[in-house]
């Protein structure tokens, strides 16, 4: 008689496991691979490969615009992406324009741009320019397509664009080879609707893992030329440009914690069904 009672207690305990214990398990599982600096091979997906190929196809001296539309809440996913793509651009002597539609995100873009530019010995105004932030979302995208200077007469420091050697011949998207939109919200859709559809902008979308599924239809319809989704996308791009960063460091931790979560889901279901069977047997 005592054995079923003991089993029921054990099952019930498992079924009502303290959520804080799960938090500790997840933190430990995330930490161990990082502390041990484990590595895991990363297979590059089609959507990241075509984004890389597009940047690779731009001739030296071509201009790439980066739109920073994320803030610190998404930095772990998007910051490794901007670093990897900037690394690729500067290594190929492409020129970069930085802008953004989210004020609190601009410092992240500036930090990434200036650190990568310094790494490659690039000069402000010649190889890269920061034109800063403007509110207005789609209105800004449309206006830049007509005449960039309508929205940005100066760079973020207040220097007129015509005084910057790199910007002298850049009037609108016609002189920009492609736009990389790094976003944690819906701005890529605005770029697609108003930049790509209206002006034929070649667009690479870099988004959080949560947002990534929403953009596969645009990729399939060839409305965008590449898609990087979440930390995995960053890790794949880091693999392609051979510049390991947080993306690659995080992949083993991602894999381990996903296994742990699958295990916890299975355990939760198993204890639920065992509990129900025990209760049914008790009632019978």
């Amino acid at each position: 008689m005592s054995a079923p009672a003991a089993r029921k207690t054990w099952l019930e305990r498992l079924n009502h496991i303290d959520r804080r214990l799960i938090f500790v398990i997840v933190f430990v599982v995330v930490s161990i691979p990082m502390l041990l600096k484990l590595t895991s091979p990363v297979k590059v997906s089609h959507e990241v490969q075509i984004a890389y190929d597009f940047i690779q196809s731009i001739p030296a001296g071509g201009v790439v615009m980066f739109s920073v539309d994320y803030d610190p809440t998404s930095a772990p996913e998007l910051q490794p992406m901007i670093l990897a793509i900037l690394h690729h651009c500067f290594s190929r002597n492409l020129r970069v324009i930085l802008t953004g539609q989210l004020a609190v995100g601009m410092p992240l873009g500036i930090e990434a741009l200036e650190s990568t530019a310094a790494q490659f010995g690039k000069k402000y105004g010649v190889d890269y320019v920061n034109i800063g932030y403007r509110p207005g979302n789609q209105a800004v995208i449309v206006a830049m397509g007509r005449r960039l200077r309508d929205m940005f007469a100066t760079d973020y420091r207040g220097t007129p664009l015509d005084q910057l050697p790199m910007m002298k011949n850049i009037r609108n998207y016609d002189q920009i080879a492609g736009v990389v939109d790094l976003a944690h919200g819906g701005t890529p859709e605005l770029w697609i609707q108003f930049g790509q559809a209206r002006y034929g902008v070649k667009l690479i979308v870099c988004t959080t893992a949560v947002g990534a599924p929403d953009y596969y239809n645009y990729l399939q319809a060839k409305q965008i030329v590449g898609l990087l989704g979440g930390m995995r996308g960053a890790a794949e791009y880091e693999t392609l440009v051979k510049a390991p960063g947080l993306g690659l460091l995080a992949m083993p931790a991602q894999s381990w914690v996903h296994l742990a979560i699958i295990g916890l889901i299975l355990l939760g279901n198993l204890t639920f069904f065992l509990n129900r069977r025990a209760k049914n047997a008790e009632n019978a």
């Binding site: 930490s31 990082m34 930095a75 772990p76 893992a209 949560v210 979440g230 931790a253 996903h258």
Partner: peptide, 18 residues
């Protein structure tokens, strides 16, 4: 994808601490 995103945020903070 959402699970991956949330874990990425934790990884980001763990990386910062370590």
């Amino acid at each position: 994808y959402t699970v991956m995103a949330r874990i990425s945020l934790l990884i980001g903070r763990a990386y910062f601490l370590f």
